[in-house]
Design a protein around this nucleic acid. Structure first.
Length: 276
DNA sequence: CACCACCCCTGGACGC
DNA sequence: TGCGTCCAGGGGTGGT
């Protein structure tokens, strides 16, 4: 389940393995996961791999680019052209060095959208996204949360409010910041917003450093698994003891997502006295 | 306008 | 071992 750290891991992998390569050809295996004309990238050099939130843009020096959504089960791999293509490989960029950049997505929740240039990408696709979770400021997060009455969990999952967080990292973040997923966004005060940002940055940085969280089928561009799932404090641990206070962790669906938190140390009462 | 439920899809886990 | 069932969830859409 690629969230920001997983997408960043993939971005770095693509950058290391394919940046500077000329795209000889583009092969579309499944038309319905692709918007626009990826063939426009053929003949051009891959000049940048950009990320905003969970979205990845593969940009050529001539302008044409592909914006990749990994969705739930999507992956990008750079492999020798001689390696048999894995099942559910929907789009292939054939590189001049004998390698192929391959987009695979069994569940097809992801997809690839192609644009003529970065301006079109921003205008059509990235303009509505909130600030990236790695760079959002406490003041901006506070302002954005205060504009919604939705519960905090739902607000933080909204990519238009802040881009990059998914179910795993929202639960981990709320645990680290000792905030209840059920409190209204508009009830988050300035110091709590500051604490969210202060916890979010190192959380995401540590996850990127570990290569992301590998659950089920997520892998980086080099095919390697991440290791951050071993550092999850609450995600997937409903009913088990809280690593901080030992109380059984609560689990219930919030905003259609399984949510796990500690009712003991993630409440308004316990956060009052933290003061950071 | 804000928000929420539903739906898309496949593979892995689990029970029998 | 094999088969059926359930569950995971990002993000778009349509309904309230």
């Amino acid at each position: 389940m690629p969230e920001l750290p997983e997408v960043e891991t993939v971005r770095r992998g693509v950058e290391a393995a394919a940046l500077g390569q000329v795209i000889q050809a583009v092969r579309v295996k499944r038309r319905d996961v692709v918007q626009g004309r990826p063939q426009a990238m053929a003949g051009h050099r891959l000049s940048a791999a950009l990320r905003h939130g969970k979205q990845l843009a593969l940009v050529t020096d001539a302008g044409p680019l592909a914006c990749v959504h990994l969705g739930m089960s999507g992956s990008l791999c750079v492999e020798p052209a001689s390696t048999p293509r894995a099942k559910h490989t929907h789009l292939v960029w054939v590189l001049a060095n004998g390698q192929e950049l391959r987009f695979r997505d069994p569940r097809r929740f992801g997809g690839v959208a192609c644009f003529a240039d970065r301006q079109a990408l921003h205008k059509v696709r990235w303009h509505a996204l909130g600030p990236d979770a790695t760079t959002i400021t406490p003041a901006d997060l506070h302002r954005r949360l205060n504009a919604t009455r939705r519960v905090l969990k739902a607000a933080l999952l909204d990519q238009n409010l802040v881009a990059g967080l998914g179910n795993i990292y929202v639960d981990e973040l709320l645990f680290a910041a000792r905030l209840s997923p059920l409190m209204p966004g508009c009830a988050v005060d300035r110091s709590q917003a500051k604490r969210l940002v202060a916890r979010m940055r190192p959380l995401l940085a540590r996850a990127v450093k570990a290569g992301g969280s590998s659950l089920r089928d997520y892998v980086g561009a080099d095919g390697a698994s991440g290791a951050f799932q071993n550092n999850h404090q609450v995600y997937g641990r409903g009913g088990l003891p809280c690593p901080r206070c030992g109380q059984d962790l609560s689990a219930m669906a919030i905003a259609q997502r399984t949510s796990v938190w500690c009712g003991g140390c993630q409440s308004v009462d316990t956060t009052q006295e933290l003061g950071d």
